[in-house]
Design a protein around this nucleic acid. Structure first.
Length: 502
RNA sequence: GCCCCGAUGGUGUAGUCCGGCCCAGCAUCUAGGGUUUUCGACCCUAUGACCCGGGUUCGAAUCCCGGUCGGGGCACCA
């Protein structure tokens, strides 16, 4: 299964083996996103780690939309059901089947009834606050805990048929009232919610909590290994309690710490607001840090993958920099990336006394690979006179008399600053080196192509790129010399590019 | 208050289980140099770490004890 991945796994063999492999017929893992929005760079760790191990052991990966009803703070969003697979595709993650928690509610009911019959769970109608303060903290069981199965089943029916309103009753698992860990005392596993679900509407009014639904499903789906964030360790303990009650094999639990980026603020709810009110251009806006946005910027999924796998499985919270992703991306893409000139808000400089022979500049497509040919940029000189756009900051640091080179074209001496005028000086690059003159990028006034560049902070800047750019295709990754790497995401006038990194 | 977890250079990680091959490796960042008609790539160099205190041992980043600091949990969220 997925034979094409064998090579790719080879290079990352430094991650540890999964534990207890002999205990399981095969490695089965799952991706369990809550569908509230697209996956972003912060979610990539969970996805890549699971995918990595499944590929390494030729196992099975299940995409499980963890779409139980959520809460007022955590809301399911319909579009996430499509945005998540889209992100997975970008990352090159291959999953073998897709499961929706919201399709499995009856299964959770079945086990709930069973747990109640067995006396391992009960329906509690205590007020949540009262229960916490008077029972959990004081380790005193509430009156509901000792009710017999008969009564509990009657109460369960009342939960299902609406005799209880929201918050009036919930099912608690008897994890133990005397557990030293307060988090473990008779935790709620099912509760009432009358919110409308995007997939199943109002078909159900009793919904399982994450730890319960997984306690059942990790077994039902045959999951062998679970890798997830350490914010879920308590949930893992509750799952283990359930597995023990039924004498099921315990899947291997592994946790990693929280991942933060020093140069990226990740907030799905803020992103959703900004996307909805149009402040962001869409879910691929760079400020969302979604996988879609990385794709739009031309970040190779392999770069993301490499960085995430380098982090390993440490359980400590870490803060890393996007710079490591950019560094990997450059390594991956630099050699294959064509060069181009782009000048943001060009300032026009008149070049005089041009050599009559000089009608076209010849610039290598890639400096390290001359065999890839030349970009030919017409200069449009009339009577030895032409006009070029250069970067304002370059002009600013020039003094009168400064000898500079328009890269891959000719050397000039600055004659006037306002308006800028330069005189042709020489052709050979050595002449500018002799005087340590700057070599700068430029574009001709005639024939240059308007480009709108979206920066990482969402701002857009206008500029001109060299003639010829209009022949590129959407999706191309380029390096604007001395500016940085960009990806064309839409051809047009202007051409739309997204800045990737320096 | 109670429970759990962790601690290696600026950042991240390897080594810790089974003490010596670690005066601690790798990546990234930063600084400098080389090369290059880019502020990219490539090459070289530099700075820089085992949380603290005891103990065991010929020998401890690794084992033991005690601190300190940091993170997470104690939701009818995921």
């Amino acid at each position: 299964m997925i034979p094409s991945t064998a090579v790719e796994v080879e290079e990352d063999k430094d991650l540890p083996e999964l534990p207890n492999l002999d205990k399981w017929p095969k490695v089965t893992m799952r991706l369990a996103p809550f569908p509230s929005g697209p996956l972003h760079i912060g979610n990539a760790r969970m996805v890549i780690l699971n995918d990595y191990y499944v590929k390494r052991y030729n196992g099975e990966l299940i995409l499980v939309f963890d779409d139980t009803i959520g809460s007022t703070e955590k809301v399911i969003e319909q579009d996430a059901y499509d945005l998540i697979p889209e992100g997975l595709e970008y990352l090159g993650v291959k999953y073998h089947r897709t499961v929706y928690k919201s399709d499995r509610i009856n299964l959770f009911y079945k086990y709930a009834v069973d747990l109640i019959k067995r006396g391992d769970a009960y329906v509690c109608d205590c007020d949540a606050t009262v229960w916490r303060n008077e029972h959990k903290v004081k380790r005193i069981p509430c009156a509901c805990r000792v009710l017999d199965a008969q009564e509990n089943l009657a109460r369960w029916e009342k939960m299902l048929n609406g005799a209880y309103a929201e918050k009036e009753a919930a099912v608690r698992l008897k994890t133990g009232m005397t557990d030293p860990d307060p988090a473990m005392r008779d935790h709620v596993i099912l509760r009432i919610s009358e919110s409308e679900h995007p997939r199943v509407g109002t078909k159900y009014r009793v919904w399982p909590l994450l730890e319960y639904s997984w306690g059942i499903d990790d077994h039902e789906l045959g999951v062998s290994h679970i890798i997830r964030g350490k914010d879920l360790v308590k949930e893992g303990k509750i799952e283990q309690h359930i597995w023990s009650l039924y004498n099921w094999a315990h899947p291997e639990l592994m946790y990693y710490g929280r991942l933060k980026f020093e140069d990226a603020k990740l907030s799905k709810s803020k992103s959703r607001r900004e996307v909805q009110d149009g402040t962001y251009t869409g879910w691929d806006d760079p400020r969302t840090w979604s996988l879609q946005s990385l794709d739009r910027r031309g970040i190779d999924a392999e770069a993301v993958r490499k960085v995430m796998l380098d982090l390993g499985l440490s359980i400590v919270d870490i803060t890393i920099s996007m710079k490591s992703v950019y560094s990997e991306n450059r390594k991956l893409r630099d050699a294959e990336t064509p060069r181009a000139f782009f000048v943001q808000d060009p300032v026009w400089i008149t070049a005089e006394n041009l050599d009559k022979e000089l009608i076209e500049a010849h610039v290598p497509v890639h400096p390290d690979f001359p065999e890839r040919g030349l970009r030919r940029i017409p200069l449009h000189a009339i009577d030895g006179k032409s006009t070029f756009g250069i970067q304002q900051s370059d002009l600013n640091r020039f003094k009168l008399g400064t000898i500079f080179r328009l890269k891959d074209m000719a050397n000039f001496a600055l004659k006037k600053k306002n308006p800028p005028v330069a005189h042709y000086h020489s052709l050979d690059v050595e002449r500018v080196r002799e005087v340590n003159g700057p070599i700068i990028h430029w574009i001709p006034r005639e024939g240059s192509i308007p480009v709108e560049m979206t920066l990482v902070d969402g701002a857009t800047v206008m500029g001109l790129a060299e003639p010829g750019l209009e022949k590129m295709k959407a999706g191309s990754f380029l390096q604007f010399e001395r500016v940085g790497f960009v990806r064309i995401y839409q051809m047009g006038d202007p051409i739309q590019v997204s800045f990737a990194h320096k």
